[in-house]
Every structure is written in C-alpha cells, then in structure tokens.
C-alpha cells in the first residue's frame, strides 16, 4: 500500500483523470472531494462490503426453499 501525507487543501492524482482532494479535517473526520469520470463507480467501502456479504447470505439459506416459498 502506498502511503502519502496530505494536508487540508492538498490533492492526489490517480491515473490521468482521478483527483482526490482533502477538503477539511475536523474531529477525526476527513471530508474528501473526488473528481473522476462519470463512468467510474465510487462507493463507500462498507456499503460495497455489506452488499457482497448479503449476496453470500442470500445463497446460504438451509431451509427447504421451495416448500417455504409455496406457503404464501
């Protein structure tokens, strides 16, 4: 992992067209501005991780699925 020190107002550039700017640092929170092409999906990692986990949960049901769903 590349580790860089940045101060408020400073940026990093990734590739040709992604810029990440540190907008504000306060009380242990950092506000980040990201400029990137629209086709690049930007997500909070915990949201992405929660979806991956839930997809895995969805497959792991041990119930008799057909019998279960035919109750309704």
């Amino acid at each position: 992992m590349l580790i860089l020190n940045r101060k408020e107002g400073e940026s990093i550039i990734i590739g040709d067209n992604v810029e990440i700017r540190i907008l504000e640092i306060q009380d242990g929170k950092i506000k980040i501005g990201i400029e990137a092409p629209k086709e690049i999906t930007i997500l909070r990692k915990e949201v992405y991780d929660s979806v991956v986990e839930e997809n895995k949960n969805a497959l792991s049901s041990e119930e008799d699925v057909l019998k279960f769903l035919s109750q309704k």
Binding site: V51, N55, F68, K72
Partner: peptide, 18 residues
C-alpha cells in the same frame, strides 16, 4: 431485489440498497 430467507417470513429480508 435479492431476498435472504430466514426461518420464517418475518426473518426473511430483501436487499433494497442493491
């Protein structure tokens, strides 16, 4: 939406964020 089945319908859920 993808559903995660639990033991009962009440314990089953849908993933609405994805």
């Amino acid at each position: 939406n993808v559903v995660t089945l639990g033991k009962t319908f009440d314990l089953s859920s849908a993933n609405l964020i994805a």
